[in-house]
């Protein structure tokens, strides 16, 4: 099963890549999302711009108050990073639960963001951890908050001439913790999320002062469940408070039935996983 014919370039600098990008081109890092789409002929760009040869994009850096994950950092590297685990556990776990070993060895964290699959794991982690997407083009750099980045199924806020060159994740402070959990299509946590949730919470003097909860797998895009966060803030994070907050996981989400679950089942799972993610995040503080 071959993709349709396409032209291929592997530029050695971002400037060369920007020059190559056009209306009918696509950026490729690991290719774990793009190549299957092209093989299934759901998508047939005229030009693939392979950014894997561009130096400097493969690092995961501690920048003091934040961490940057470069465009070529693979899922396996995000998952194995102590820096990510200790500062953004939700993203770390989501990376570890992405695909399988072979997929994690090739696919990239930035790539899964740009692909914006409605059932992907790491976008939920990025939303909960308050990530900022750094989009570069020939005309400059845009900083896009994760909350504005996921637009629709397989649609991000990136313009065709932009490359997601890195993701910025704020470092974790005192009293903060995050977690991600999901039900996978093959049961347990394997494969794409039937439903999943990431939670980030900040607790001070016994009460929750800030929170972000994101759900994935159930609708057209990974979404911040703002109602859940609103309901959590000001509570003590007790089991009953968390349960009540998680009930609001579907606010603002259009739940879509698919082969892996009915609307009713997915709606139920979203609340269950929101609850689990919040409880795990609280337990990690």
């Amino acid at each position: 099963m071959y993709p349709r014919k396409f032209d291929y370039v592997a530029p050695s600098s971002l400037d060369e890549a920007f020059e190559a990008l056009g209306d009918d081109s696509k950026v490729m890092a690991g290719g774990m999302s793009l190549i299957p789409l092209m093989k299934l002929r759901l998508f047939s760009p005229a030009l693939v711009v392979d950014i894997a040869r561009i130096p400097g994009l493969d690092t995961l850096d501690d920048k003091g108050d934040h961490i940057t994950i470069g465009a070529l950092v693979r899922h396996a590297e995000t998952a194995a990073s102590d820096l990510i685990r200790s500062n953004a556990a939700a993203l770390s776990t989501a990376a570890a639960l992405t695909g399988d070993v072979q997929v994690r060895n090739r696919g990239t964290t930035c790539g899964t963001m740009a692909h914006a699959d409605a059932v992907a794991d790491q976008p939920a982690g990025a939303l909960a951890c308050g990530a900022v997407m750094i989009a570069q083009s020939a005309s400059g750099t845009r900083e896009i908050p994760a909350s504005e980045f996921f637009v629709d199924s397989l649609t991000s806020a990136l313009n065709p001439d932009e490359i997601l060159t890195s993701i910025r994740i704020p470092k974790s402070g005192d009293g903060e913790g995050s977690a991600y959990d999901k039900l996978g299509r093959r049961g347990g946590r394997s494969d794409y999320a039937v439903a999943g949730a990431a939670a980030w919470v900040k607790r001070s003097n016994g009460s929750i002062t800030e929170a972000r909860v994101a759900v994935t797998g159930i609708g057209t895009k990974p979404t911040l469940a703002e109602g859940v966060a609103e309901a959590l803030i000001g509570t003590d994070g007790s089991a009953s408070a968390v349960e009540a907050a998680a009930e609001r996981a579907l606010e603002g989400v259009t739940v879509l039935e698919d082969l892996y679950g009915s609307e009713e089942y997915k709606s139920h799972l979203a609340k269950v996983y929101a609850k689990r993610a919040i409880n795990q995040a609280l337990a990690s503080i």
């Binding site: 291929y8 392979d50 396996a76």
Partner: peptide, 11 residues
């Protein structure tokens, strides 16, 4: 590293 060679271009 283990990879799936059907999901990788030769280039």
């Amino acid at each position: 590293k283990a990879v799936k060679s059907c999901t990788m271009l030769a280039v």
